[in-house]
């Protein structure tokens, strides 16, 4: 699959010849240098965007629009501010036209699970970042998806809260056996959660490497194996970062030469 953005006169290739499989029930993390198109990739799986060429398939079916079994958690939480906590969780079910009783039952169970029982009638602006993302996760799970996409879901939350939330998500994954895809720039986060880590290269992004993480859960970032894996992937990413930095510098240098030529003339 390839994604090209055409914004004349420029064409930017965000993703180039990306190809990978996701196994049912696995936790796949996608890491890569910032701006490499990780989020674009996730958005395409969510059906919010289409690849320029290539295909995305879900259980063999071609994905061209949002799928009823694929749900998403957003970096910005994206809770609808005029809805209370429970109304936000019910959103997907409401769209599906499920009866009110059923919606409330599902939503209350999920709020219980994410530890927000008692807050169901608050508005999002009354919640902390961590609580907002709990609502975001409950909303994503409410439609009983098979795949949960998480776009930098822990990046806008303070580190302590994020740590607790990661543990809960890991728990939810273990119990529900749903497939999770998490895009992140936080490498320790990826190692803590993932069954496999997909490492993307700098723009245009290609699959640089797929690393299986075979550590027992819960994982501590102080374990020697954890540190080794971190080192390995980090050096992969660093090489990519240096590459892209070099390219960037080269571009600047050329620009500088052009300017100098013009001045000389």
């Amino acid at each position: 699959m390839t994604k090209v953005y055409e914004d004349p006169p420029e064409t930017v290739t965000a993703l180039k010849d990306i190809s990978f499989n996701v196994n049912e029930g696995e936790f796949l993390c996608i890491v890569g240098p910032s701006g490499c198109g990780k989020s674009t990739l996730l958005r395409m799986i969510a059906g919010l965007d289409r690849p320029s060429s290539g295909q995305i398939r879900f259980r063999g079916d071609l994905l061209t629009a949002p799928h009823s079994k694929i749900s998403m958690v957003f970096q910005t939480f994206a809770l609808l501010p005029w809805r209370t906590v429970i109304q936000n969780v019910e959103f997907g079910l409401e769209i599906q036209g499920r009866p009110k009783m059923e919606r409330q039952e599902v939503a209350m169970d999920l709020l219980d699970m994410v530890g927000l029982r008692g807050s169901e009638n608050l508005y999002p602006k009354q919640l902390s970042g961590g609580m907002k993302q709990r609502v975001g996760i409950a909303r994503a799970l409410a439609i009983d998806p098979e795949v949960v996409l998480m776009d930098e879901a822990f990046s806008a939350i303070d580190e302590f809260t994020a740590e607790a939330l990661r543990a809960e998500v890991s728990d939810i994954h273990k119990k529900s056996r749903k497939t999770f895809l998490l895009v992140t720039h936080n490498l320790p986060e990826a190692i803590e959660l993932a069954d496999r880590i997909l490492v993307l290269s700098a723009r245009p992004a290609r699959v640089k490497s797929i690393v299986g993480i075979d550590l027992d859960r819960p994982r501590a970032s102080t374990d020697s194996e954890f540190i080794t894996i971190h080192k390995d992937i980090f050096s992969l990413l660093q090489a990519e970062l240096e590459n892209s930095l070099m390219r960037h510098r080269l571009g600047e240098l050329q620009e500088f030469r052009k300017l100098k030529d013009m001045e000389d003339r």
Binding site: A46, G47, I70, M72, E94, I95
Partner: peptide
């Protein structure tokens, strides 16, 4: 992202407008 939420949860045009 609000539009994304509406799309991901598969709201139609009318639902996107009203909800």
């Amino acid at each position: 992202d609000y539009f994304h939420v509406a799309s991901v949860f598969r709201a139609g045009r009318a639902q996107t407008l009203t909800k």
